[in-house]
Amino acid sequence: MVMNNKSGEIYTFNSFTLQLESLNVSEESRYAVFLFIILSYLFIIVANVGVAVLVFVDRSLHQPMYLLFCNLSANDVLGNSVVLPRLLLDILRPPSERLIGYYECVLQAFIIHMFNTTSHTVLMIMAFDRYVAIGNPLRYSAIMSNKMLLKLTAGAWGAAFVLVGILLGLTVRLSRCRTFMQSLYCNNAALFLLSCENIFVNNVYGLTFTVVLFTASIGSMVVTYTKITVVCLTSKNKTLNSKALKTCSTHLLVYLIMFFSGIIIIILHRYPQYSEEKKIAAVLYHIIPGALNPIIYGMQSKEIRKYFSRMFYSNKVLMSS
Results as ranks from 00 to 15, higher is better:
F115K: 14
R139C: 05
Y131V: 01
A159M: 10
Y140K: 13
L123E: 08
A154Y: 06
H113P: 00
M148P: 00
P137N: 05
H113T: 04
I112L: 14
D129H: 12
D129T: 08
F110L: 13
L123G: 12
I143F: 15
V162W: 06
D129M: 13
N136V: 01
H120V: 03
W157D: 00
N136Q: 11
F161D: 04
M124G: 02
I112H: 13
L107T: 11
F161A: 15
I112R: 14
L138T: 13
Y131I: 01
Q108P: 00
H113K: 07
N146S: 15
R139K: 13
L107S: 08
I143S: 06
G135P: 02
I134M: 05
Q108G: 10
A127Q: 11
A159G: 00
T153K: 09
Y140E: 11
F161R: 09
S119Q: 14
M144D: 03
L152R: 13
T118I: 08
M124E: 11
A109L: 04
T117G: 00
Q108D: 15
A133W: 08
I111S: 03
Y131R: 10
H113I: 03
M148F: 12
L107N: 04
R130I: 05
N146Y: 07
V122N: 14
L152V: 04
A133P: 01
F161S: 07
V132I: 15
H120G: 05
M148T: 13
W157Q: 07
T118S: 15
F128P: 00
A159P: 00
S141V: 08
L138D: 10
T117Q: 12
G158I: 11
M114G: 04
T117W: 08
I111L: 15
V132L: 12
S141E: 15
A109W: 02
P137M: 06
R130Q: 09
L152W: 15
M114E: 12
V162D: 03
R139H: 06
L149F: 11
M144R: 13
I134K: 08
H120F: 06
A154H: 00
K147R: 15
A154P: 00
A142R: 15
L138A: 06
D129V: 07
V132N: 05
M148H: 03
L150E: 06
G158Y: 07
A154S: 11
H113E: 13
I111D: 01
G158R: 05
L150S: 15
M126W: 01
F128S: 05
K151V: 14
M144W: 09
N116G: 10
M114T: 03
I111G: 03
M114C: 10
L107Y: 10
L149S: 09
I112P: 00
S119F: 02
N136E: 07
W157E: 06
T118A: 14
M124L: 14
V162S: 05
W157G: 02
F110Q: 01
K147I: 08
P137A: 08
M148A: 11
L107F: 13
D129W: 06
G155V: 02
F110V: 05
D129I: 01
A156W: 06
M144F: 12
A109M: 05
L107C: 05
Y131W: 13
A127I: 03
S119C: 13
P137K: 04
